[in-house]
Design a protein around this nucleic acid. Structure first.
Length: 266
DNA sequence: ATGACGGATCTAATCCGA
């Protein structure tokens, strides 16, 4: 049985509903995890997904900012959302896929603002606190962790070749040593495996995000790998392939992130 | 300057993204 999971920071699900449904029709992943839906639950476009074969939907959204969703062709149970840092800001939701017995966690980690110093920047302090709680959960669950996938916009590019210039981004939030160190510690202590880097090891450059601010994003190609799909160690034998839909960055009115899909043979 | 664009909101200017 195949399981394909896509993660995509959509930067407003209502504005880009046409792009999302076109993606689902063309690429048909089993599960789509969205971040930055920017949509209160009551206004989520459930019908648009139901009519193209995605009837199973878990949402955690609010007005204006953040928001996550899991949209599935296959049924799930135990939909669950965690408030990290005791803030009800819609940055996590999980489901358990009934037929697979696999749990999927979908995260939107805080961006962290401009200044990489928690003393000077409360947004960076929030990011570090969020990551600390993720690490605590990761370690606590490590011994029992089976059949789990975690995806999302983690807002950190952990490896040298996850950014266009390691040296030039060392003091830029998303690639500072404190952030990359914590993300690597979360992955290692939780015994998570990074499927994309197993299939595409360093030093190949891999990006999932290109800034809106570049005059020509494709020509400058100053990207970062901010979006990730990890799995528990027991799923590594099932890891099949990954796909980054870079061309989605050129679609009309695009998100600044593109869809990342990992496929398992389970 | 990496790079000033793009989304949502109490439709104007402000917050936020990374």
């Amino acid at each position: 049985m195949t399981l394909s999971v896509t993660t995509w920071n959509i930067n407003s699900v209502r504005l880009r509903i046409g792009l999302v449904t076109q993606f689902l029709k063309d690429y048909a992943p089993d599960v789509l995890c969205l971040q930055e839906t920017k949509c209160p639950d009551a206004q989520f476009p459930l019908g648009e997904f139901r009519k193209i074969g995605y009837p199973h939907i878990a949402i955690k959204g609010q007005k204006g900012y953040n928001g996550v969703a899991i949209i599935s062709r296959k049924p799930f149970e135990n939909s669950h959302a965690i408030d990290y840092c005791a803030k009800p800001d819609c940055r996590h939701i999980s489901v358990r896929l009934s037929a697979y017995g696999i749990t999927i966690h979908n995260y939107y980690v805080p961006a962290g603002g401009e200044i990489a110093d928690p003393e000077l920047n409360v947004k960076f302090a929030h990011k570090l606190a969020f990551l600390a709680q993720m690490q605590q959960n990761s370690v606590e669950g490590q011994a029992m962790r089976r059949a789990e996938i975690m995806v999302g916009d983690l807002n950190i590019a952990p490896f040298e070749h996850d950014v266009w210039s390691h040296k030039q981004l060392l003091d830029v939030v998303s690639h500072t040593p404190i952030e990359t160190g914590i993300l690597n510690a979360i992955r290692e202590s939780g015994n998570w495996h990074d499927g994309v880097r197993m299939l595409e090891p360093e030093p190949t450059k891999v990006y999932t995000w290109w800034s809106y601010r570049a005059a020509d994003w494709a020509a400058s190609n100053k990207g970062r790998r901010l979006d990730h799909i990890w799995h528990s160690a027991d799923l590594s034998p099932a890891l099949k392939s990954y796909h980054i839909l870079k061309e989605a960055r050129s679609w009309e009115r695009p998100s600044d992130h593109v869809p990342l899909t990992v496929t398992y043979d389970v």
